Simulated scan of single mutants.
Amino acid sequence: MANGSRQAAWEFFGTELKRRREDAGLTQSALGTRVFVSGGYVGQFEQAIRKPQLDVAQRIDEVLQTGGFFERMCRKLIDDKRYADYFAAVVELEALATRICEFAPTLIPGLLQTAEYARAVTIAANPFVTDEYVEEKVTARLERSRILKDAARPEYWVVVHENVLYIPVGGPAVMAAQLDHVARLMRERHVLVMVLPYEAGAHAAMGAMLTLMDFEDAPPTAYTETSFSGTLLDEPAVVKRAQRAYDLIRGAAMSPETSLALVESAAEDYRRCASTT
C-alpha cells in the first residue's frame, strides 16, 4: 500500500471510530477510560495523528461492539512489509516524538543513513533478494529521515561508538559520502552527534542499539535492538533504566566539537582511499 493511500486508510479508521463512538453515546474521555488510554489519545486516533496499537483496537471493538472491525483494519494497516514486524511501531512513534536519543554500536543510525549506505547494509543482510526488495527497503529508510527536515523536527541526540566510523560499509566512497552527510547535519545543527571512543572501554549498553523517545503528551518509551529482533519498552521502571544507561554512555563520549572533527577526519581518510582505488 502506498504511503498516501495508507494515510487515507488511517483517516477512514479515525472517521469510523468517531462515528461509532458518538453512536454509542461516549465522549472521547469515556471511551479512553474503558480502553485504558487518555481521551486525548482517542482524539488523536480519530484525527489519524496517532495510530492505535493492536491491543487498543481490540479493546475498542469490545467496548463499541463492532465485531472486530477495528482489529481487522488495524492488522491490515500495520502489516507494512517495508519494516520488520518488531520495528513498525517504532517508525510510527518516531514521527510523533519531541526528542529522540540513540546509541549505535556498529552502524550509522537509520535516520542518518544515505541511500548508498542503506543499500549496502540491506544487501549484506539479504544477499539473495531482488533489486526491487532492496530499493523498497532503502526508500522506506529514507522516508523515515524526512522527520529531520521538518520544521517541527524532534530534538535528535546520537552517540555512535567509534566502531561505526571505521567499519567500511559499502567501501571507501560510500563511507566518505555517508560521513560527510553526518557532518553536514551536525554543522547545520539538525542533530547532535557524539562519538564513544575505544578508550571508554566497557559501556552501559554493550552490543545493543538503544533508542529513547519523548513525547508531548505521552510517557517516554525505549527501544532496543540486536541483529535479529527488537523490543519496544514502555514500562516506566524499565524505561528509566534505559535512560540511565544512555546517560552513562553520553557521559563517556567525546564532546560534540571533538566528535565532529573525528567524523570529518574519517571522511577525508575514506576519500583519499577511494581516490587511489
Rank of each mutant, 00 (worst) to 15 (best):
M1P: 05
M1F: 08
G4F: 12
S5L: 13
S5K: 13
S5G: 06
R6N: 08
Q7R: 14
Q7V: 11
A9C: 03
F12T: 15
K18L: 14
R19H: 09
R21A: 02
L26E: 11
T27W: 03
T27D: 01
S29R: 14
S29T: 15
A30M: 03
A30E: 15
G32Q: 01
T33H: 13
R34C: 02
V37H: 04
G40R: 04
E46Y: 12
I49N: 09
K51I: 04
K51Y: 08
Q53A: 12
Q53V: 13
L54M: 11
L54I: 13
V56A: 01
Q58M: 13
I60Y: 10
I60T: 12
E62H: 12
E62W: 04
E62N: 12
V63P: 05
L64E: 06
T66Y: 05
T66W: 08
G67I: 01
G67A: 00
F70T: 05
E71I: 02
R72I: 03
R72S: 13
M73C: 08
R75C: 07
K76C: 11
L77I: 08
I78G: 04
D79C: 03
D80L: 07
D80V: 04
K81M: 02
R82M: 06
Y83Q: 00
Y86E: 00
V91A: 07
L93F: 09
A97M: 06
T98E: 09
R99K: 08
C101R: 15
C101M: 13
F103K: 02
A104G: 03
P105C: 03
G110M: 03
L111I: 05
L112Q: 06
Q113D: 10
T114Y: 05
A115K: 15
A118T: 07
R119G: 07
V121A: 04
I123D: 00
T130I: 09
D131S: 13
V134S: 13
E135I: 08
L142I: 15
E143N: 14
S145W: 10
D150Y: 06
P154H: 02
Y156M: 07
W157P: 04
V159N: 03
V160R: 05
E162G: 05
N163S: 14
N163V: 04
V164T: 04
V164P: 06
V164C: 00
I167H: 14
P168Q: 03
G170M: 09
M175G: 05
M175Q: 04
A176W: 03
Q178G: 07
D180V: 09
M186R: 11
H190N: 13
H190Q: 15
Y198N: 02
G201H: 11
H203K: 09
A204T: 07
G207S: 04
L210I: 08
F215E: 07
P219E: 02
T221N: 10
T221R: 11
A222F: 00
S227K: 10
S229C: 02
T231Q: 02
T231N: 09
L232V: 01
D234G: 00
V238L: 02
R244W: 13
A245H: 12
Y246N: 10
L248H: 14
I249C: 02
I249P: 00
R250H: 13
A252S: 15
A253I: 13
S255K: 06
P256S: 00
L260G: 09
E264H: 10
A266E: 00
A267F: 01
D269T: 14
Y270N: 05
R271A: 10
A274L: 05
S275L: 15
